[in-house]
Design a binder for these strands. Structure first.
Lengths: 118, 118
DNA sequence: TCCTTAGTTCAAAAGTTATTGAACAATTGG
DNA sequence: CCAATTGTTCAATAACTTTTGAACTAAGGA
């Protein structure tokens, strides 16, 4: 049940930049980076957008090669493709995440939510 | 005759990423970086797009704070806002330019042209 | 002054991306 | 099996972005 992902060398710079150029998706990536290593499921991001819209944005991130999505039961476990991105575009993800970390204008994940660490 | 530019602190990360997410604009930025220090005029980029369309893309770059545009006579001298971008988003421009440098899929500036160094 | 060069503006058309709601599928727990 | 949970798909619409051509401005040279 593996969803379609580009291989590392299929990842395109303009597509990655365009995909990260959306505030909702940038907020998702920032949150994924802040929990690096921990695979998160879609519901974590429900305060950013509707379920349907989230599905759309998470598909964009996956198709661009920014995230990896594993289907486990009815859940999707989402992780950052850090090694592939670092190999392909050294330093890019780090600088984007560092810059996003400072950004008060970006939507926040886990502010209206019950924030229970599972 | 100074055209409107955002101040350094008005430069927004998602807007910069979205603006760089267009292949034509990324090619412009790559070329500007390759000639860093040398202000270029719009005509340098005529093999990327029509005059009208270039005007549009160069305005996007300027409004996002990626480039600075000086009006000199009937020309516009365009430079990268490297210091402002570096201050605001350390490492970002460098990693984008390095990644773009390798990218064979991006359109090229100065391939069909008469390439006379003025 | 007239012509050319360099670039902008405007409105329309074309294309693309984002958002929505309703309906669907698949897994899991009771 | 039934119901709930988790997420997807589809079609429609809304909202933007890109591209175009024609008309324009502003400066500079003959």
């Amino acid at each position: 049940m593996t969803l379609p992902h580009p291989t590392a060398d299929q990842i395109s710079l303009p597509i990655v930049l365009a995909v990260l150029g959306d505030p909702t998706r940038l907020a998702i990536v920032r949150y994924l980076a802040s929990k690096e290593g921990v695979p998160l499921n879609c519901s974590k991001f429900l305060d950013l957008a509707s379920k349907t819209n989230l599905s759309y944005h998470l598909a964009k991130l996956r198709e661009a090669g920014v995230t990896r999505t594993e289907a486990v039961g009815t859940s999707r476990l989402i992780t950052l493709r850090r090694d592939d991105l670092d190999r392909r575009f050294p330093g890019l993800l780090d600088s984007v995440i560092a810059a996003a970390g400072e950004d008060k204008a970006l939507p926040m994940v886990g502010t209206a939510d019950t924030e229970i660490d599972a």
